[in-house]
Design a protein around this nucleic acid. Structure first.
Length: 772
DNA sequence: GAGCACTGC
């Protein structure tokens, strides 16, 4: 560098940078972050002008004061403050990570958010995307080793990186964005980072959140002496949104929603409407009803009612139809039959609350409900329940009306209920989920003491217990709670532990190629498409794929056909399968195939179809032996082994007749308890491949046990007559089913260096919570 | 004889 001309970063000292210095560097003709420094483009200067307008820009001086002096900062600011794009850039000037070989990470809960933030910031910094500024998401690493110093990524991706590098040494500052969403990955990262700040004094953390409830984060990240982490607040500048409540509670929110939309259409000034509902069916029905009602109104009084178009929006809708939300608002009728201007109504699930932004929305109708996942660890079932939203969700929804100009939000509940009935925050995901993957990740990270681990919200002990129990049966962790070599591999695979185990054992069954496909198909969203007006055609199309021995085999069949018909773009549509889900399965499969290679798992196929199908079903037992059911009675009823849940085959199953023993992929609770994606298995396989789980002394008395007992007797008889035959087993025979006491004992054993009193406290709390 | 809110690795 020529020492005579001033360089943009002259006088910058790491972590002692001031706002004045940064502003000067930003005005500089040379770009400080390129090597060698490049002349800034006109586009860059233009973008800088709009960056200066962002609320967060005005608070740059204060930000640096707080950031320089603290290891952890909680930053609160609503959407539209520019925090996601600007704060990481500010940090870049402070960390000077481009000179130290470290990186700044900024996590997002969703892939698209990580990509779009990285794109925007690369443009603002006048660098090529994927060079100095990049992103990293599941199927795409847009970073360059040694060059990238600002990396946007999904929260799950950072969590995965932590498994290889628990101290996250490559980062100088880690920013967790959208922390208020409390995704499982962000929650775990917050716990890990809190512990990490003690090991790495120079690591800085910024927790960015959009809501009222930053105090919880402040307390969580308080120092040992009780000093709270500093709160930095950015005052947003979105347009005002006027909130209206109903005078009385609405008995039927669907009917009230329709009425409100019609009222807006007739009485309010032009502007599009966003209505939040809970699910696909509800949305389709309401769209049709609104359009019919408006047709009626127009017939009655054509001159005072404008045309309306309803656009449904939910995630399983094909991309092309999702794009309709960007269609222009319909124009007024005329000139022969003049009418008021037209209106667009988007009827959407929660997808429009966070994932998709629709410009031009002026009116929001919020009935106050959404479908939320709930987990019942007792019967190990996750289900979706229509539940009241939280106040922070309601605030988020209302905000969607003020993106382009002042708007209005109609809440279909009373103000009193808003304050007294709604929770302040949505229940965090960690309290509503099956934790088997998460617990395994924690064990892999070296966190053995799951009770003393500091969670923002401690999960239900029974959820932890269920997770440990499953992992132990899968032999991912041993009886001491230590990770086994198998468990280490399972943790490395981006799959549910059962699916990972299935994939790992598959070469032993000589069908790993097919299991790889099935596992990929099971880890993407539903591939079957069944439009309301073409149910029969869809069912007929599905019947052509059906393999009578098992739904897992049907999935394999669909994938094989999909690949064979790759050249035909229309194939998914004409066969009533989701092209998007199949493409996703293809990507998952490719990723898993690379991992199999790394683990030296052979890719093996079988030629004899009959043998192949049998091997696949046997392999399934190795991963899913805890999800086996036995036929009970005559009318398609099954009883799950051990849990003794009465379940029925889901009507979507293509299984022929009703086999006596089945393995199922999921247990869902909708109209009835159903088991879905089901394959026939033989009882001998259960006893042979999962002897510890099917240990008869652990199975409650009943028909299931009697049948297993008689199969066992037959097997033993034939064994006695064949002296050479050794009992083979894929799972150790020493494990036993846990009781809660066992798990408490196990957790106790795990925490070796804990003072007795605190641990006892922890266990006491654990017992207390589990008996509630 | 029915349904799948939404993400993420």
């Amino acid at each position: 560098m020529d020492s005579s001309t001033p360089q943009p970063l002259d006088g910058f000292l790491p972590r002692q940078v001031t706002g004045a210095q940064v502003r000067k560097a930003l005005e500089h003709d040379l770009n400080a972050f390129t090597d060698p420094p490049t002349i800034r483009t006109a586009r860059c200067k233009e973008l800088l002008a709009s960056r200066r307008e962002l609320p967060v820009y005005a608070q740059m001086d204060d930000f640096f004061t707080v950031f320089n002096e603290n290891q952890i900062v909680i930053l609160v600011g609503d959407t539209g403050t520019g925090k996601t794009t600007q704060i990481p850039q500010f940090v870049a000037y402070s960390d000077l990570a481009h000179l130290t070989g470290k990186m700044i990470a900024c996590t997002q809960p969703r892939r698209v958010a990580a990509i779009s933030a990285a794109k925007r910031v690369a443009e603002e910094m006048d660098v090529q995307l994927g060079h100095q500024v990049g992103y990293s998401i599941r199927f795409e690493d847009m970073t360059k080793r040694g060059t990238t110093f600002l990396k946007y990524m999904t929260d799950g991706m950072l969590l995965r990186e932590a498994m290889d590098d628990p101290d996250l040494q490559r980062y100088s500052t880690i920013i967790l964005d959208e922390a208020h969403e409390r995704t499982l990955a962000t929650d775990i990262l917050m716990s890990l980072l809190k512990a990490l700040t003690k090991r790495r004094a120079e690591l800085k953390i910024i927790i960015m959140s959009a809501t009222l409830d930053a105090v919880k984060f402040q307390k969580f990240f308080s120092l040992p002496l009780g000093t709270k982490a500093p709160l930095f607040e950015v005052i947003g500048r979105t347009h005002p949104v006027e909130i209206f409540y109903t005078q009385d509670p609405e008995p039927d929110y669907v009917e009230a929603a329709i009425r409100t939309v019609l009222m807006i259409h007739r009485a309010e000034l032009p502007g599009d409407i966003l209505l939040f509902l809970t699910g696909e069916e509800e949305i389709e029905v309401v769209c049709r009803k609104i359009e019919l009602e408006v047709d009626d109104l127009i017939k009655q009084d054509p001159s005072s009612v404008g045309p309306i178009v309803c656009i449904p929006l939910y995630s399983s809708l094909p991309a092309k139809q999702q794009q309709r939300i960007f269609d222009p608002t319909p124009a007024a009728r005329g000139p022969d039959h003049p009418s008021p201007p037209g209106r667009k109504v988007v009827v959407s699930t929660n997808i429009a609350e966070t994932s998709l932004t629709i410009d031009g929305i002026v009116y929001v109708v919020d009935p106050g409900f959404s479908k939320q996942k709930v987990y019942n660890p007792r019967i190990r079932v996750e289900s979706l329940l229509v539940s009241p939203i939280s106040r922070s969700s309601a605030q988020q929804r209302a905000g969607r009306a003020g993106r382009t100009r002042p708007g209005k939000c109609f809440r279909l509940y009373t103000e009193r209920d808003f304050w007294s009935q709604l929770e302040e925050q949505t229940y965090p995901e960690i309290l509503r989920s099956n934790l088997s993957s998460t617990v395994l990740q924690l064990v892999k990270l070296g966190i053995k003491d799951l009770v003393r681990f500091e969670y923002l919200d401690m999960p239900a002990p029974e959820s932890l217990m269920r997770a440990l129990e499953l992992l132990n049966f899968l032999e991912a962790i041993d009886d001491n709670g230590d990770l086994t070599p198998l468990g280490s591999k399972i943790a490395e695979l981006p799959l549910d532990p059962q699916l990972a185990k299935l994939l790992i054992v598959s070469p032993e069954f000589k069908c790993s190629n097919e299991i790889l496909t099935i596992v990929s198909m099971l880890s993407v969203p539903n591939i079957w498409v069944r439009p309301a007006d073409q149910k029969n055609q869809a069912d007929a199309a599905k019947a052509l794929f059906t393999v009578p021995d098992g739904d897992h085999l049907t999935l394999l069949n669909v994938y094989v056909q999909y690949v064979l018909n790759k050249s035909n773009e229309d194939w998914p549509r004409t066969n009533f399968v989701s092209g998007r889900a199949l493409a996703e399965a293809e990507r998952v499969r490719a990723q898993l195939q690379r991992l199999m290679k790394r683990f030296e798992l052979e890719l093996i196929s079988m030629t004899d179809e009959k043998e192949l199908h049998q091997s696949i079903r046997q392999a399934l037992v190795c991963g899913f032996f805890m999800q086996v059911a036995h036929r009970e009675g005559e009318k398609g009823c099954y009883l799950t082994v051990k849990d003794n849940q009465v379940v029925t085959l889901h009507p979507s199953s293509g299984l022929k007749a009703n086999p006596e023993w089945v393995v199922f992929n999921e247990f869902i609770l909708t109209a009835k308890p159903y088991i879905r994606t089901v394959s026939e298995v033989r009882p001998e396989w259960l006893l042979e491949l999962a002897p510890s789980y099917f240990d008869l002394s652990s199975i409650p008395d009943g028909e299931t046990k009697r049948r297993l007992q008689s199969v066992m007797n037959e097997v033993q008889q034939s064994r006695r007559s064949d002296a050479n035959r050794e009992a083979s087993s894929h799972t150790s025979s020493s494990t036993t089913l846990f009781t809660l006491d066992d798990v408490v004992a196990m957790l106790t054993q795990m925490s070796t260096s804990t003072p007795a009193s605190t641990l006892e406290d922890a266990i006491e709390r654990l017992k207390e919570m589990s008996t509630r």
